[in-house]
Nucleic acid binder design. Structure first.
Length: 128
DNA sequence: CAGATGACTCCCA
DNA sequence: CTGGGAGCCATCT
């Protein structure tokens, strides 16, 4: 296999930290990797993954809302085998399976940023 | 060096 | 809720 571009290598490294049964989005991975990486770049890295890193759990990366667009069937099957639940429209239940990011030591060692906050959570703002 | 591409996202009708 | 269009960015020709 050819040599993976530097940014891709970081993306693969981070993706390998996602434990089974959990998922994250392209945008989240991009935000944690940083260095001018965006959601599309992550998608491109995963597309080329077969040539660079066959051991990356690509199925754990889904769209922002949990939907799977391109290789849906295969991906959904793999995730269900890990215990990830889907709603009737075929979207992974991000609220329950979202990955919180790598542990602090790992993040610090590789300079990964924190995962972005999510407005999907029933936060209690407007305290009074 | 410039143009094309893609496993994404956000915004508006 | 669904669909179409623009924005973004690293890589590849």
């Amino acid at each position: 296999m050819t040599t993976a571009p530097p940014l891709y290598a970081r993306i693969y490294l981070l993706c390998r930290q996602i434990p089974p049964g959990q998922v994250t989005s392209y945008g989240d991975v991009a935000a944690m990797v940083g260095g001018g990486c965006d959601a599309r770049t992550v998608g491109e890295a995963l597309r080329a993954m077969g040539e660079h890193a066959p051991d990356v759990p690509w199925q754990r990366i889904v769209s922002q809302d949990g939907a799977i667009s391109t290789r849906g069937l295969e991906q959904r099957r793999l995730l269900e085998a890990e215990g990830v639940a889907f709603d009737r429209r075929g979207r992974a239940l991000m609220v329950h399976h979202r990955w919180a990011g790598p542990d602090m030591a790992f993040a610090a060692a590789h300079r990964f940023g924190p995962p972005p906050p999510h407005d999907d959570a029933p936060e209690q703002l407007e305290l009074f």
